[in-house]
């Protein structure tokens, strides 16, 4: 079985994240790019299945600039067997639909029984790529899983929605996404890091995938305007000297909040 895991380079949420007000694009130098944690969890789910089921091949796939290779190297160090990087200047500023089209083409070319992704990234937070990918690949999706079970020919899990939880299952091929309820990704060990250097990392361009990023017949989302909101300023700060609770009650009442 071949499992393709989608990973993504994102700005580290521990740092300040900035958008360029001229272009509307992420300022990649503003904060350290890191592999999105949710992708590490998705990869962990795939690798732990592979650990228990010899003959399972795990491939990490990303779409992103050159720096995104770091995320792929980490994935290979964690235990993925191969990596695929879609790298093309034409993808700068790609919207979610184009990104899904590119991923679908790369997944199809790589070959897959199961695709596993995180439910939502920390930067875009759209949370629709897995469903779009499933539509493009013409396979079912089982997404937003807080528990995932993988067998030789099926995937099942628990899908948490606002009003309750669904149990879902589907035969393969399929696309799954998991939430942060799943375990953290393992830390790469020395052996893994050394082994990663010998593993295949394939780079693909839009031309390789037969995708025209400028195709105007398909609806794309475009940015019209962008503005930075004024940063929130700190207000009143008191140190409790025995009556802070009363002062706070007065503040809430005066502001009609209690």
């Amino acid at each position: 079985m071949r499992i393709v895991v989608l990973v993504k380079e994102v700005p580290d949420t521990y740092g300040d994240r900035k958008l360029d007000l001229e272009t509307g694009l992420a300022e990649r130098t503003a904060s350290e790019p890191v592999m999105d944690e949710i992708g590490e969890r998705a990869l962990e789910a795939a690798i732990s299945h592979a650990d228990a089921n010899p003959g399972t091949e795990v491939v990490v796939l990303t779409v992103g600039p050159e720096t995104a290779q770091k995320a792929l190297h980490k994935g290979l160090s964690m235990g993925a067997m191969a990596a695929v990087h879609v790298l093309d200047a034409g993808l700068q500023g790609a919207d979610v639909t184009l990104t899904a089209e590119v991923l679908a083409a790369a997944v199809r070319r790589t070959g897959f029984d199961l695709v596993i992704a995180g439910n939502t990234s920390t930067d875009g937070s759209g949370g629709v790529v897995p469903a779009m990918l499933a539509e493009l690949l013409d396979v079912p999706h089982a997404t937003g899983l807080t528990r995932i079970g993988i067998t030789a020919d099926a995937v099942n899990g628990t899908r948490a929605v606002d009003g309750g939880t669904f149990e879902v299952s589907t035969s393969l091929p399929a696309v799954a996404s998991i939430t942060e309820a799943l375990p953290d990704g393992r830390l790469p060990n020395f052996k893994g890091i050394m082994a990663a250097k010998k593993k295949p990392l394939e780079t693909m361009t839009l031309a390789d995938l037969g995708i025209d990023a400028e195709d105007m017949s398909v609806g794309r989302s475009i940015m019209l305007t962008i503005y930075e909101k004024r940063a929130r300023e700190a207000g009143k700060k008191i140190i409790d000297e025995g009556n802070a609770g009363e002062q706070l009650a007065k503040f809430l009442v005066d502001n009609k909040l209690a």
Binding site: R232, A234, G235, K236, K237, I238, I239, D240, N243, A244, G245, E246, Q247, L248, A249, K250, F251, L252, V253, A258
Partner: peptide, 25 residues
């Protein structure tokens, strides 16, 4: 840094006092 009203203190004394004061009001 983002609070309009900040209290530096022990939750377990400030919050019960706050609840009492709200109740009294």
């Amino acid at each position: 840094d983002v609070a309009d009203f900040a209290v530096v203190g022990d939750l377990f004394t400030v919050v019960p006092q706050l609840i009492d004061a709200l109740g009294a009001r």
